[in-house]
Amino acid sequence: MKVLAAMSGGVDSAVAAARAVEAGHEVVGVHLALSRMPGTLRTGSRGCCTIEDAQDAWRACERLGIPFYTWDFSERFQADVVEDFVAEYAAGRTPNPCLRCNEKIKFEALLDRALELGFDAVATGHYARVTRGPDGRVQLHRAAEDAKDQSYVLAVLREDQLEHCLFPLADTPSKELVRAEAAERGLSVAAKPDSHDICFIPDGDTRGWLAERVDLTPGPIVGPNGEQLGTHTGAQAYTVGQRKGLAIGRPAPDGRPRFVLEVRPKENTVVVGGRELLDVDRITGIRPSWAGAPLPEADGGDWFACELQFRAHGEIVPARARVCSAPMQGPSSPAQGAPPAPARGDDGARWEIEPAHPVRGVAPGQSAVLYRGTRVLGQATIDTARNALLSTDRDA
């Protein structure tokens, strides 16, 4: 099989490429230049896609004896990931740029080009499994090791894309074994730190980064009943569940901390309240997609059993869900005056999801990923979340 190995410059992608070579595939390595500042340097474990990462990817391919190329996807990354991130925050939502990068760059732009060039599959260092169901159709499953499982950020992959995905690390029980294997293979990235935080905000200061790109205007911080408690520096810089940085100046009557309950971009208002007011018992998801074949029992709008995860490595909650084909009206619609979410093939479908017990810290813009056991069913972008105690919908 002819395989294009996506080489990030890290240890996971290097070992994944090595295993693809060892399996007898014809492998070519490619590093994606995503930064519009090619001189950007890496600082410890912060950031990725830097000039050092490109050099590390090249060294790994040299060691493996496979061809190496660099493809410039910086314009596509800027438009589909960075600008999407800014637009979502401007609309009062909390986006996941890693998930969007997988959707639009690694498994759309990259995979499309790979197929055009005659490759059969794209191999990456993600920890997830692709298998066949009893019907012979492809399925996405959690990795063998829960601590490293990355199926949440891969849930945007469609069935036709999964047909061409290769995840050689799927059954590896620990990252330590991957590093040991890299050392045995003589790969210089064996001890390289994992990257974390948002790659295009390597210093981790998301609020400061957004302040340069979003019109942040001071406005009121209010309680659940509308009483003004303080002033914020720009509603779009806050996210549901946030506790620090509120600077209200006076404690709640009961002395307990306050949290961001809602961000209202149209009114430039941040709503805060007690922790218990973060509980959510119903979620509406927009732009849904199935990771493989749709569930037969989902046809006709019937409820189906599943498990819900709305944060990478977050809590897994028993739930039920159903598909609503027509666009939902009323409180589930985006707030009037809020910028529309970037179009991603939205056909008007919605998913309604009800967790078996209230969940906390759900924010519009996050991805609600549905599972059944280890199998990933699909995902949707959270549009509204109903508060269990107030019986009101929070949306953007």
Rank of each mutant, 00 (worst) to 15 (best):
S289A: 12
I283S: 02
L308S: 07
R311C: 04
T269Q: 10
E262T: 03
G300N: 04
G314V: 07
G314W: 08
V263G: 08
P253V: 00
T269G: 04
P257H: 09
S289I: 14
D299K: 08
V270D: 08
L295K: 05
V272E: 03
R264A: 15
P294Y: 02
F304R: 00
R264M: 13
V270E: 03
F259H: 12
V271E: 04
N268G: 13
A247M: 15
L261M: 04
G300S: 02
G301Y: 01
P251N: 09
R250S: 12
C306E: 01
L261Y: 03
T269L: 12
P318D: 11
P318M: 01
R256Q: 13
E307Q: 12
N268I: 08
P251E: 11
A312N: 12
D302Q: 11
G300Y: 01
G314Y: 07
I283G: 04
V317F: 06
G292I: 07
P251C: 09
F310L: 11
N268K: 10
A291W: 02
I316D: 05
D281W: 08
R275D: 06
A293H: 07
E307S: 10
P318T: 02
G255P: 07
V272F: 06
V270K: 04
G249S: 14
W290S: 10
K266I: 06
L277A: 06
P288I: 06
